[in-house]
Simulated scan of single mutants.
Amino acid sequence: MLAFLSRRKETTVPDPIAPQKPATPEVLMRFLTQGGATVELTKAVRAGRGTTYPFECLGCGYDFDNYSSIVDAREFANEHAEKCRAMPRHA
């Protein structure tokens, strides 16, 4: 009579999503978005601006390059990855 209480739906853990492209030597950190895309944080040296830490979402295409602190850039890139639901773009 109460057999439905003992049945449980089997849950599976999804396979990890492979990065869209191999990381280049310039990539310092990668963050996985909610949709499975990758946010890449890099280091760039620009004339007149010095060292900056830009990041780009390989899912939605959002990019930002105005951080001179790696700590701030990492925090913002990670916040973007937490909220972004974009799936990986196909190459």
Results as ranks from 00 to 15, higher is better:
P54H: 14
T33A: 00
K43V: 14
V45N: 03
L58D: 04
G50K: 13
V39Q: 11
G48C: 07
T51Y: 05
A37R: 00
P54M: 13
K43A: 10
Y62Q: 13
G50R: 13
T42M: 12
T51E: 05
V39Y: 11
E40Q: 15
A47D: 03
F64M: 07
G35N: 03
R46M: 08
L58N: 08
F55M: 01
G61T: 06
R46L: 15
F55R: 00
G36Y: 03
F55H: 00
F64S: 07
L58F: 08
D65V: 08
V45T: 15
D65L: 13
G36I: 06
V45W: 11
T52V: 02
C60Q: 10
L41W: 10
E40R: 10
P54E: 12
G36V: 10
F64K: 11
A47F: 00
D65T: 14
A37K: 01
F64N: 04
C60G: 11
D63L: 07
G50Q: 09
L41S: 06
Q34P: 00
A47K: 01
T38F: 15
E56P: 04
C57D: 15
G61Q: 03
F55I: 09
G59H: 06
Y62D: 13
Y62I: 10
V45Q: 04
D63T: 15
P54K: 12
T38L: 06
G50S: 12
T38H: 09
V39D: 14
R49N: 03
L58P: 13
T38K: 09
T38D: 15
G36Q: 01
Y62G: 11
E40Y: 08
R46P: 02
G36W: 06
A44S: 12
T38I: 10
T42S: 09
K43L: 06
K43S: 15
V39P: 02
G35Y: 02
Q34D: 02
D63W: 02
F64P: 03
G59S: 10
V45I: 12
L58R: 12
Y62A: 14
G48V: 07
T51N: 05
C60N: 06
C57L: 08
G35V: 08
T51I: 14
L58H: 15
L58I: 08
F55P: 07
R46I: 14
G48I: 13
V39H: 10
R49Q: 09
R46V: 14
K43T: 15
G61R: 02
F55E: 00
A37H: 00
